[in-house]
Simulated scan of single mutants.
Amino acid sequence: MIWEVFRQNQAGDYHTHCGNVHAPDREMALLFAEVQHGRRKPTNSLWVVPQDEIGEVDTEDAKFGGTTNKSYRFARTYNVEPAAEEVEASEKELNEAERKRGEA
């Protein structure tokens, strides 16, 4: 049986595929993965998964991102000029109020 091995360098990193091992059961697969893939580089953890248990969804099977218009999520779709003018006017108002407080 073929087992796929995923390795994590440091805690918090993503696990990345580093190869596979041939083993009759999970216990042997874990041992072989540790020997073959855990000793060569600094390793925080290993994931060992039966190859036939790994599924894939690709672009032919699903439409990633959907068909809904979600352009509102990206800043490039907004008109920032009115907001910038409002911020500028607010800053002028604040500076004028501070100046008047200083004169009083």
Rank of each mutant, 00 (worst) to 15 (best):
G12W: 07
Q51A: 15
V57A: 07
V48Y: 05
E81G: 03
V57F: 07
N95G: 03
C18N: 05
N79K: 15
P50C: 07
R73A: 09
T77A: 07
V21K: 05
H15W: 06
A84D: 06
V5T: 00
A89I: 03
F6E: 00
A23Q: 00
D25Y: 00
H17M: 12
R7I: 04
R101P: 01
T68S: 13
E4W: 01
E53S: 14
E98L: 12
K92F: 06
K92W: 08
C18T: 14
D61S: 11
Q51F: 10
V57L: 11
N69T: 10
V35C: 04
E88P: 05
G102W: 00
Q36M: 12
N20W: 02
A11K: 11
I54Y: 06
K41D: 11
E103H: 06
V49W: 02
E103G: 02
S71I: 12
V21C: 03
D58S: 13
T16P: 03
E34M: 05
F32H: 04
A89F: 02
A89D: 07
R73W: 01
A29L: 03
I2L: 10
H15G: 01
E96G: 01
R39K: 10
N79Y: 09
R76A: 08
T59P: 03
E91Y: 05
H22M: 09
W3K: 00
Q51N: 10
Q8A: 02
K41T: 14
E103L: 13
F64R: 09
G55R: 12
I54P: 03
N79V: 06
E56R: 09
I2P: 03
Q10C: 05
A29K: 04
W47Y: 11
R7W: 00
T16A: 01
R26M: 04
D61A: 14
R73H: 04
A11N: 08
A83W: 09
P82E: 08
W47R: 07
N69D: 15
P24Y: 00
H15N: 08
W3M: 03
V80G: 01
G55Q: 10
V49D: 01
V48T: 06
F64G: 02
G102K: 08
